[in-house]
Structure formats: C-alpha cells, structure tokens
Computed example of a mutant assay.
Amino acid sequence: MLTHQRKHYLLDLLQREGQIVAKAVSDALGLSEDTIRRDLRELAKEGLLQRVHGGAIPNLPASPALAPYASREQISQDAKPAIGRAAGAMIEAGQVVFVDGGTTCLHLVRQLPGELRATVVTHSPSIAVELVHHPLIEVVMLGGRLFRHSLVNVGAATVEAIARIRADLYFMGVSSLHPQAGITTGDYEEACVKRALCDAAARTVVLASPEKLNTASPFQIAPLSQVSDIVVLRDTDDALVAPYREMGINITLA
C-alpha cells in the first residue's frame, strides 16, 4: 500500500470510528506500527488530525483555560465555586493533600471549613496565601521558578520536593480533558509538575469546569488510568462523562 493510500485509509477510519489505534491498524494492514505512527505524525503536521498516545483523534478545539490567569478568573464563575465545594468535601481530617494552582482550586480552598485539620501541600503562592486564615491547616509550600501564566512554581526543584512527600489526595487543575487525548495542559514544565504530584498521591481528583471538557492542549500530564475521580458540574451532558465512567473513574456531580 502506497503512502497516499495509507493516509487516505487512516483519514477514512478516523471519520468512521472517531479514533485511530496504531496497533490495530498495523495488525489489520500487516504493516509495522512505526510506519503507521509516521503517517499519523505527517497527517498531524498537515493539521488533519491530532496525535495522542497510541494513535490519533480528530482535531479538538483549544481550551479557553489556556488564557492568562486574570482572564480565566472570568470563566465559569458559577461552576467553579460549586466544583471547588464538592471537591473540598472529599478531604478528611488529618489527611495530607496536594492542591494544584488555578482558579478552580482557589475556589476549593476558599470554601474549606474553618474546623478542618489537615495539611495542604501546594506549589501555588495564591493557594498558600488563601489558607493563611485557616489556623488548623498546615501549609507546605513547594519552591521553584514562578510560572507567571498559572501563578505556580515549576522546575526541577519543585519535582524533587514532590518526590519526598506521599499525599492522600491530589486535586488537579487541568486545561483540557478528553477521553482519548487524556489530561493535558499548555506548558511542558507545568505538565511535569502535575505528573509528579499525581505519582506522589494515593488518589488524584481532576477538577473539570465546563469549558475544559472535550478540548485538548499540547502536553499530556498523565494517562487517565491514574485518575480516580473527576468533579464536574451537575448539569454536564451525561454523554461527556460516560466514557470516564466506563473507564472506572468516579464522577462527582457538583
């Protein structure tokens, strides 16, 4: 099969099935996975599809959550407090909790009960400052280089510090969430820090306000198999969350 024939086959398959699994295609055509992956890379460069781990999916819209921090504060103003409140209710007394940066996580810590006794570990100066008036919450700040776009610390020092902590929960803020593209964000170093937090927590909870669903960003954080819970708004279309339920992920409706 010639290159242009393979690419036509791949695009037709993508249109019919909504995704391409490289191994399945290589088996069906009797070709190496490297050949299929090369074709997918070239098609992605042409803007005809989006590469994901193990294959490809149709091009997805970019997430509004890639906008600067001040702009993101104006998005989903009703949804974020509800999602933050539902997420915060998961914290039990005495737990050690990673809290990500971002506007949704800020709403989470703003609504924590005053009597909660726990330890919050964060790489976000905004989150740490918000917790100043919670006398029973021990706050641990992770250092590093300040990534101004998201107001979080990133870099090797941040990742190294995370590796020395074992947390009960990690509340992850994301730019994008998609059943095939997975959990993604707009900055490579920020993705590395989020991945390290995920690896160091017993349970990862993704906070997904409406604008983040069914979108994709450039850098994958972690496979969906590492996510235990996703918190979404109560009136979210069930078709958007059904694929995650099928993966065994708990869906909390805020």
Rank of each mutant, 00 (worst) to 15 (best):
T252K: 09
D235N: 11
T185P: 00
E46F: 00
V174D: 03
A82I: 04
V193Y: 01
R164Q: 04
Q220D: 14
D27V: 14
K212R: 02
I230W: 03
V129Q: 14
A208G: 05
V132N: 15
V121D: 11
Y170V: 07
R41H: 11
T103I: 02
H107G: 07
L11R: 11
E46R: 03
V154T: 15
S228P: 15
A44K: 12
A156G: 14
L136G: 09
T122V: 00
L151V: 11
S76Q: 14
H4Q: 11
A24M: 13
T215R: 10
A157P: 15
L2Q: 14
S209C: 08
L31A: 08
S76R: 13
A201Y: 10
A62L: 06
N153L: 10
I20F: 04
V152M: 05
S32K: 00
D199N: 15
P81R: 00
D78P: 07
P68K: 02
T215P: 08
E246Q: 07
P61D: 06
G55C: 10
A161L: 13
R110N: 13
M141V: 00
R148A: 12
E130P: 10
S63H: 01
F147I: 12
V152L: 03
A200G: 12
L151K: 02
D187G: 01
V120S: 09
Y170G: 09
R6D: 15
V174K: 04
L207S: 05
E138Q: 11
H4F: 00
S217H: 06
V21G: 15
A70G: 14
K23E: 14
